[in-house]
């Protein structure tokens, strides 16, 4: 068994015993539940008002069909995913500082890059599982609320768009991993994640979203309208470069970790 496999076994054990992964699952499940609720409302807004589900002044865009319903899922994952995935990776890296176990990890025969790789693999795989879960719940929710005429080609196309948004969101966890390491705990990383969501929203509103990595997944998802109006050919490379910088910085920090606490 090589060092990465051993470190991976350790990280999987820690994940299995923690409540954080299931809390993330619970939190992100709210997205497709709310999406399905919107479909119920859109199917019969007057009845929804009578039931007290929405206020009398509420206005919801779109119609109760698969196109609207499945278009909500990338928007959910681009915003909700940013927070939930960041929370997960902040915990995976930051807990070593909060539990003060980092002192032990820095002097074990397993090389530090193997430990970082294992942590990132676990964070990425769980984020992918969460993304798939959201799409599954969204689709099931649509069926349960009675949306009709789901075509398999449309479902696959929606899944492709959703997957690209998810990948753009997931690869942005690396700067969070760096902030959790550099900030020696999960609180700085959570603060950073909230800041990136805020930055993404503001830059989107100001029309600079195509240049800001944390706005690009949401803009790609169509949250602000047709993506061609906001994104340009360099938008994707910006996300990839940001992710790579986060990755390099995280490995560099762990390689040269110097405890001053």
């Amino acid at each position: 068994m090589n060092s990465i496999s051993r470190a991976l076994k350790v990280e999987i054990l820690k994940m299995r015993r923690s409540r954080v992964p299931s809390l993330c699952l619970l939190a992100i499940s709210l997205g497709p539940i709310v999406g399905s609720l919107f479909m119920i409302i859109l199917q019969d807004p007057e009845h929804a008002k009578e039931m007290g589900i929405i206020g009398t002044k509420a206005q919801l865009a779109g119609s109760a069909d698969w196109e609207t319903h499945l278009s909500l899922l990338p928007q959910i994952i681009s915003t909700g995913g940013t927070i939930v995935y960041s929370f997960l990776v902040a915990w995976i890296f930051g807990r070593e500082f909060s539990n003060r176990t980092v002192r032990y990890l820095l002097a074990v025969p397993t090389p530090r890059p193997a430990i970082v790789t294992a942590k990132l693999i676990v964070a990425t795989v769980w984020s992918i599982i969460l993304s798939l879960w959201v799409f599954f719940c969204g689709t099931m929710g649509g069926i349960l609320v009675g949306l009709e005429n789901l075509e398999i080609d449309f479902l696959l196309l929606s899944f492709k768009e959703y997957s690209i948004t998810s990948i753009l969101t997931i690869i942005l966890i690396t700067p969070v991993a760096f902030v959790a390491s550099y900030g020696r705990g999960y609180l700085p990383a959570l603060g950073f994640a909230i800041f990136t969501v805020f930055l993404g929203q503001i830059s989107g509103v100001l029309g600079w979203g195509g240049y800001v990595p944390w706005a690009i997944p949401a803009l790609y998802s169509g949250a602000a309208g047709p993506r061609a109006d906001f994104l340009f050919p360099g938008s994707f490379p910006i996300v990839i470069v940001t992710s790579l910088l986060g990755l390099i910085a995280t490995f560099w920090w762990w390689k040269t970790a110097d405890q001053r606490e």
Binding site: L13, V108, T110
Partner: peptide, 9 residues
């Protein structure tokens, strides 16, 4: 201790 066993190979 199992974590330690793994990390110490």
């Amino acid at each position: 201790l199992e974590v330690v066993r793994l990390l110490h190979n």
